Simulated assay, not measured.
Amino acid sequence: MEQNTQPLVKHGNNFDLITLWLHDKSPNSRRGYYLDIIQFTRLIGDIPLDQITLNDLQAFSNALGAKGYAVATISRKLAAVKSLLTFSYRVRVIPNNVGSLIRLPKGKDRLAERILSQSQVRAMIDLTSKLRDKTLIRFLYATGARVSEVCALKWRDVQPIRNGRAQVSLLGKGNKTRVVVFSTEMWELLQQLRGADGLNEPVFKSLQKGHLDPSRVNRIVREAAERAGIEGKVSPHWLRHSHASHSLERGAPLQLVKQSLGHSHIAMTERYLHARPDESSALYLGV
């Protein structure tokens, strides 16, 4: 029987396909992916996706390298292009998935450099005087939430449970909701911040009383790290990394940490076990 090769979507040009591909992704992912794809399309020009060749992908990779992008950034941008081409292939717009032919470059894994010590996290919290910012930093660390998840929170997403503890419902990647339980102390700090705010108001407000922008959260965390004397471009994601590493060090089950962080695969969570090992063969050399 002859296979149906009719496209599964209506489209007029590359922009239509890009829009369809981005449709179900989170707002944060949409912004990042869109910028990466626009950078690629500027290089190849107005070429339909079904005419893209391996040469085009390699030329994009080489151009990024020539501009001095880090290996991790090049890998992310190529992954975005590969994802778009895979989507286009699955909806039968392109006959072959040329994206499957290019390998993503791998650089040095710098996860260990982005894990703060518990004393550094404590210093960031203690040296931050503004209640909103102090609560925000502590909440990012306590829950391991992504910055986009925290920025979207309303008070209806946070509620008390048994034993004085509380929980938060986070909408993560792939529009998947997960629930993270946190301590009584964190709940009490949130209640100080809330005041008389209603259920539909943002947990973390901007000066204009709307939701905080991710860029503002980045500045708050970076400034807190500078006050604590921490080197490096500390971001909210460092607090997520620290949450994972510290909870595993304190005996949290790997599967529980995976669920709390919203990882799709256990291998993503296992990276934290290898980033901060307790032993190595070097300790047996006596030098």
Rank of each mutant, 00 (worst) to 15 (best):
E2Q: 12
N4A: 10
Q6K: 13
L8W: 01
L8T: 06
H11E: 03
H11I: 04
N14P: 02
I18Q: 01
K25A: 03
N28S: 15
N28R: 14
S29V: 10
R31T: 13
G32P: 02
Y33Q: 00
L35T: 08
L35C: 04
I38R: 11
R42D: 09
I47N: 00
P48I: 06
T53Q: 06
T53I: 08
A63I: 04
A63H: 05
A70P: 00
A70G: 00
V71N: 09
T73E: 02
R76C: 01
A79W: 02
A80G: 10
K82P: 00
S83M: 08
N97R: 05
V98T: 11
I102P: 00
K108S: 11
R110C: 06
V121Y: 07
M124F: 06
D126C: 07
D126F: 12
T128K: 06
I137H: 01
I137M: 09
Y141R: 03
A142M: 10
E149M: 08
A152E: 12
W155A: 05
V158M: 06
Q159W: 13
R162C: 05
N163T: 15
N163S: 13
Q167W: 07
L170C: 02
L170D: 04
K173D: 01
N175P: 01
T177M: 05
R178V: 09
T184K: 15
E185V: 15
W187Q: 04
E188F: 09
L193R: 04
A196G: 02
A196V: 14
D197W: 05
D197P: 02
G198L: 13
P202H: 06
S206K: 06
G210I: 05
G210Q: 08
D213E: 10
D213F: 11
P214E: 07
S215A: 14
N218M: 05
N218F: 14
N218W: 15
R222L: 09
A224G: 00
H237P: 03
L239S: 00
R240Q: 12
R240L: 13
S247L: 14
G251R: 10
A252N: 05
L254D: 04
Q255L: 15
V257I: 15
Q259N: 14
S260I: 14
H265V: 04
I266K: 03
Y272A: 06
S281Y: 09
V287A: 02
